[in-house]
Structure formats: C-alpha cells, structure tokens
Computed example of a mutant assay.
Amino acid sequence: MTEGRVAAGPRRRRRPTKQGVVLSEELIVETALRLMREHGAGALTARRLGAALGADPSALYRYFRGTDDLALAVADELIGRSFAGWRPAGDWRADLRDLGRRMYEGYLAHPQAAALATYRVTGRRHEARAIEAILGVLLGAGFPGREAVRFYHLFVDQALSHAAMDAASAALPREAREAERRVWEETYSGLPAATHPNMAAMAGLLRAEMRNSCYPHALEVFLDAAAACLAGVRRG
C-alpha cells in the first residue's frame, strides 16, 4: 500500500449528469454495489454504471483507472461498513470476536460483491484502518510482534475465506440452494448403513449442522488457539 493511495481524497465532476446528479467516488461505489446486488458481479462494467448514473461511461475514468480499480474501491467500502462505529471494549477476545463477526456479516450482506472483494488487497483507507485496529487489539493484549502479525493473518483470512464461501452459496439461485439442501436432507440421509455406516449413524446431526455456517465455531477455535499462545507467552 502506498501512502498516496491510502490518503487519496474524493474527486468530483463539475457538471451534473443527465439525471441531475454530481458524480463522486462515493456515488459510483454505491451504484456499483446496487447493480451487483440486483444483477450479480457481471454488472460491474463502465457501460452499465454509466447507464445507471445517467453519465457517459468515459466519465467514470475521471474517478477510477478502470473496473479493477473500482472493484478495489467496492472492497474497501465493504470493509468500511463492517468497521463503522466499532470501538474496542478492552477485552481482546471480545473485541476480536466482534470484529470477526462484523467482517463476516458485512461481506455476507453483499454476497455478489463479496465474490470480488474478499481476496483483494485494496490499499485504501478503510483497509488500512482495519489493519491498524486488529493489530492494536493483538498488541494491546500482549502478543509479541511476530505472533501479533501471524494471528492477524490467521484472523483475517479465516473471516474472509468463510465469508467468501458462504457468500458464494448465498449468491446461488434459489433453486440451486434448495437442491443442495435436499442433498443433505434426502440423498445423504438415505444412504444405507451397510455401505455408509458413519453417515447413516450421523444423519440427523449432519442435517442439522450443515444448514448453518461453521464460522462462529471456527472463530471460537481461533480465539482458543490465540489464548493458548498468549498464555504461553506470559508464562515465558
């Protein structure tokens, strides 16, 4: 990340569009999120954005170098929304749990955009603030530098990988989601014990478990591992 990229401010169009609005980076990003929510990630094109904004598609290049640059801005906006209003409570486990859930739920609220956002490094202000906040929680808890960075990496990648997988599932057509549900509830639950004894024995538990995301449990496993590491550091 470069300092100029993080600190870059909004640029504005001097004349209103055909719809009477003044273009801004914030308006374009908000419109991009709406288009992806309605039409999927494939809607992120200059032509579609221009039509939705009532502006010539070439006007978008005054604000973004291209659609990839816009995708980074969308990713950074999702991070900003996830962290909006967050304040550390002073309990590192509670703070990380809150941040993890915010990140996960923030991406899941925009599943189509999450497909483009979860694996990107934006180099923008919201991401920089998020990195600073998470490292602050870990360092404040007493993790040494190397462990703080390692657990930062684990924490973020865990939240984003679960968000990406669950967002991809949520973005499927309803028929596809229903078909997957039936696989667990009918196909796998109906396998005979003679050929699949373990699945037959666990059929009821599998049906209940596979309805939901395992991220909340995975987050607690991460926190337990981090606490064990911190306890070892303190004993040492």
Rank of each mutant, 00 (worst) to 15 (best):
G20E: 08
F222M: 09
A163S: 04
L70T: 07
W86R: 06
L53W: 02
A73K: 02
G40T: 04
M202T: 06
A141Y: 01
E30K: 09
L60W: 04
H162V: 05
R125P: 00
I134R: 03
N198F: 12
A203R: 15
V29E: 04
A130H: 03
W86T: 02
A194V: 13
T187G: 02
L44A: 02
P144V: 13
H126Q: 13
A109M: 06
A179I: 05
L23C: 07
E3A: 14
R177L: 14
R124Y: 01
T187Y: 11
Q19N: 10
E180N: 11
V74R: 01
P192Q: 06
V221I: 15
G40H: 05
P197G: 05
G4Q: 13
G85L: 10
L99N: 00
A89D: 07
R234E: 09
D224F: 12
P16E: 08
E132D: 12
R181G: 13
L135P: 01
Y107K: 03
L191N: 01
E209Y: 15
P88I: 05
V21E: 11
L27K: 11
E127H: 05
A225L: 14
A225I: 10
R93V: 15
A130L: 09
M202A: 14
H126L: 06
Y107P: 01
N212R: 12
A159N: 03
H217Q: 14
A225K: 11
G236E: 14
A179G: 02
R13M: 12
A193E: 15
A94I: 07
L108C: 15
T45R: 09
D76F: 02
A41P: 08
H196V: 06
A55Y: 02
A75D: 01
M1R: 04
T187R: 12
F143A: 01
A117M: 09
A59N: 06
V233D: 01
L33P: 02
R125M: 07
A218R: 10
L172D: 03
S58W: 03
A84R: 08
L172Y: 08
A203Q: 06
G106F: 07
R62Y: 07
V233W: 09
D68Q: 13
L78Q: 01
M103Q: 05
H153N: 12
R129Q: 13
R174T: 15
L135V: 12
M103W: 11
A51T: 15
G40K: 02
L116N: 01
D76V: 08
V221T: 12
A171L: 07
H110W: 14
A73R: 06
A43I: 11
Y107Q: 07
A200T: 09
G90P: 01
E3N: 09
I134L: 09
S189D: 05
D157I: 05
Y215N: 02
A128G: 04
A179R: 15
T2I: 06
G232L: 12
R182D: 08
Y61K: 04
F155V: 03
A117Y: 01
N198T: 15
E26G: 11
V183K: 08
A46S: 14
P192V: 14
M1W: 02
R235H: 12
E185P: 00
A226V: 10
R211F: 05
A41R: 14
A208W: 08
R11K: 14
R124M: 07
F151Y: 14
L206Y: 08
G100W: 06
L35D: 01
S169A: 13
A167L: 03
A128I: 06
L154Y: 11
H110Q: 13
A203V: 10
T45W: 05
A75Q: 00
A208G: 04
E127K: 00
